[in-house]
Simulated scan of single mutants.
Amino acid sequence: MDFSLGEDRQMLVDSLGRFLSDRFPFAARNAVAFEGTGWSRAIWTQMAELGAVGALFEESVGGFGGSSFDVGVVFGEIGRALVTGPWLAALQAGHVLAAAGEVEGLASLIAGESVIGLAQEEAGTAFDPAAIETRATRVGDGWVLDGVKTVVSCAGSLDRLLVVARAGEGLSTFLVDKSAPGLFVRDYLLADGGSAGDVTFAATPGVPVGEIGQAGPVLEQARSLALVALSWEAVAVMDTLRAMTLDYLRTRKQFGIPIGKFQALQHRMATLALEIEQARSAAINAADRYRGDRLERERAASAAKVTIGKVGSLVAEEAIQMHGGIGMTWELALSHYAKRLIMIGHELGDEDFHLARYIELGQEDAFALA
Rank of each mutant, 00 (worst) to 15 (best):
247 D>Q: 11
310 K>P: 04
293 D>S: 11
215 A>I: 08
257 I>E: 12
273 A>G: 13
314 L>H: 08
275 E>C: 12
300 A>M: 05
274 L>T: 13
265 L>E: 11
259 I>K: 05
278 Q>D: 15
213 G>M: 00
250 R>A: 14
276 I>Q: 07
221 Q>L: 12
222 A>Y: 10
288 D>M: 15
259 I>L: 03
302 S>I: 08
280 R>D: 13
300 A>F: 11
233 E>Q: 14
286 A>G: 03
306 V>C: 06
255 F>I: 09
307 T>K: 06
302 S>P: 05
316 A>K: 01
230 L>F: 02
297 R>P: 00
307 T>V: 07
310 K>F: 11
240 T>Y: 09
312 G>C: 07
269 M>D: 09
216 G>R: 12
216 G>P: 01
240 T>I: 09
247 D>S: 05
294 R>D: 07
285 N>R: 15
264 A>V: 04
243 A>E: 08
267 H>S: 15
273 A>S: 14
244 M>V: 04
312 G>M: 02
214 Q>S: 15
285 N>V: 13
319 A>F: 00
310 K>E: 13
323 H>E: 04
320 I>T: 04
262 F>M: 10
306 V>M: 09
319 A>E: 01
220 E>R: 12
229 A>S: 08
295 L>R: 10
281 S>Q: 15
254 Q>V: 15
237 V>N: 01
228 V>A: 09
290 Y>Q: 07
313 S>A: 13
318 E>K: 08
224 S>E: 11
323 H>W: 04
221 Q>D: 13
280 R>F: 14
311 V>I: 12
316 A>R: 01
323 H>C: 08
303 A>T: 08
261 K>Y: 13
215 A>M: 09
241 L>K: 02
299 R>F: 11
305 K>M: 02
260 G>I: 05
293 D>V: 07
240 T>R: 14
317 E>F: 07
236 A>S: 10
306 V>F: 01
217 P>G: 09
229 A>T: 01
278 Q>V: 15
241 L>P: 00
294 R>L: 11
291 R>W: 11
245 T>G: 02
245 T>P: 00
285 N>S: 14
238 M>W: 01
315 V>Q: 00
286 A>D: 01
316 A>Q: 01
218 V>P: 01
280 R>G: 03
301 A>M: 08
241 L>I: 03
241 L>N: 03
278 Q>A: 13
313 S>M: 04
268 R>L: 09
219 L>R: 03
280 R>S: 12
212 I>E: 07
254 Q>F: 15
218 V>H: 05
220 E>D: 14
303 A>S: 12
258 P>V: 06
315 V>G: 01
317 E>S: 14
262 F>L: 08
250 R>E: 11
282 A>K: 03
305 K>C: 06
306 V>S: 06
280 R>T: 05
230 L>S: 04
242 R>L: 10
288 D>G: 11
229 A>C: 07
311 V>M: 06
316 A>E: 03
233 E>S: 10
316 A>H: 05
255 F>T: 13
259 I>R: 00
280 R>C: 02
232 W>Q: 04
253 K>F: 14
272 L>F: 08
286 A>F: 03
225 L>F: 00
267 H>K: 15
262 F>P: 03
247 D>P: 02
